[in-house]
């Protein structure tokens, strides 16, 4: 990098100063089809950025590019300055499909990331119960995933990600496969947990309420190929709780994001599916 005092991107993006994730000119093509293009985004070290946009706008693919699971076609992602070419250390993903290994018990699933990180058996035995406790799964250590409800499985998925004490959490529609009630319960659990250990978090969601509730900023992806259509700062106080959803400001922001996602200025065909 040149030693110019201020990078162009840094000027309009205050998060860049302490940014943990830097995304520059990111694009992904599948053959001829361009999913997203020219994405620039910075995420701070204790910032939650939520990604919303119509189905098929490439939110999930973008998240996979950040983790290095999918190679971008153009541009690059840097985490703490290091270019991402494969899943980096200190980054954990929570998947929509929970991603538990059905042949492992809850304990062994939660321990998986630590084992991969080369943590000793003894340290695992000490740390895993704390994370199982944190997500409220005590008593289910020896259960297999098929014995748990969807909500409980995702609690285990969350514990597995948190156990490695990541500096970046990537959430791929983590509550998308859950019923509405369980989803709400887990949203507030996640907020509670995040308050005790703030990390950099990129959160992909279909739900505009969730995007506003979770995010410090909401990034609206749109267009074909999709790009960053708009970024909305969410000035709701933390810690956020159930009371946040009754805040008039929450509803204003929600309407704002809703209108951005649903309006069709640049696209005659942006209705979902």
């Amino acid at each position: 990098m040149r030693s110019t005092p201020r990078d162009i991107n840094a000027v309009h993006d205050p998060a860049a100063a302490t940014s943990r994730i830097q995304i520059r000119g990111l694009g992904k093509y599948f053959d001829e089809l361009c999913v997203f293009d020219d994405i620039d985004l910075d995420v701070g070290s204790a910032e939650v950025v939520t990604l919303v946009g119509p189905s098929g706008c490439g939110k999930t693919t973008l998240l996979r590019c950040i983790d290095g699971l999918v190679a971008p076609s153009t541009g690059e992602v840097r985490i703490d300055g290091a270019p991402v070419v494969e899943p980096p250390e200190g980054v954990a993903v929570v998947f929509q499909h929970f991603g538990l290994f059905p042949w492992k018990t809850v304990f062994r699933n939660v321990a998986y990331g630590l084992r991969m990180a080369g943590v000793s058996r003894r340290a695992i035995a000490e740390r895993v119960p704390a994370f199982i406790e944190l997500v409220g799964l005590r008593g289910f250590e020896n259960s297999y995933p098929y014995q748990l409800s969807g909500g409980m499985q995702q609690r285990a998925g969350l514990a597995r990600a948190l156990a490695v004490e990541p500096k970046v959490l990537l959430m791929d529609e983590p509550f998308g496969a859950l019923d509405a009630q369980t989803r709400e319960v887990l949203q507030f659990e996640l907020l509670r947990i995040w308050d005790t250990r703030p990390t950099s978090m990129v959160f992909v969601t279909h739900s505009i309420d969730e995007a506003v509730l979770m995010g410090d900023r909401v990034v609206v992806l749109k267009g074909r190929p999709s790009t960053v259509h708009q970024v909305i700062d969410v000035d709701l106080a933390r810690p956020r709780t159930r009371a946040t959803t009754t805040d008039p400001r929450f509803h204003e922001l929600r309407e704002q994001v809703w209108n951005l996602v649903m309006s069709t200025p640049d696209d005659h065909n942006s209705v979902e599916r």
Binding site: L69, P87, E89, Y112, M116, V164
Partner: peptide
């Protein structure tokens, strides 16, 4: 594929993939 992806996201190499998946 999702099992393989989860393992890869936790930086599993081929031999880890054999052992755990």
């Amino acid at each position: 594929a999702r099992h393989i992806e989860v393992a890869r996201s936790f930086r599993a190499r081929e031999r880890h993939l054999w052992r755990d998946v």
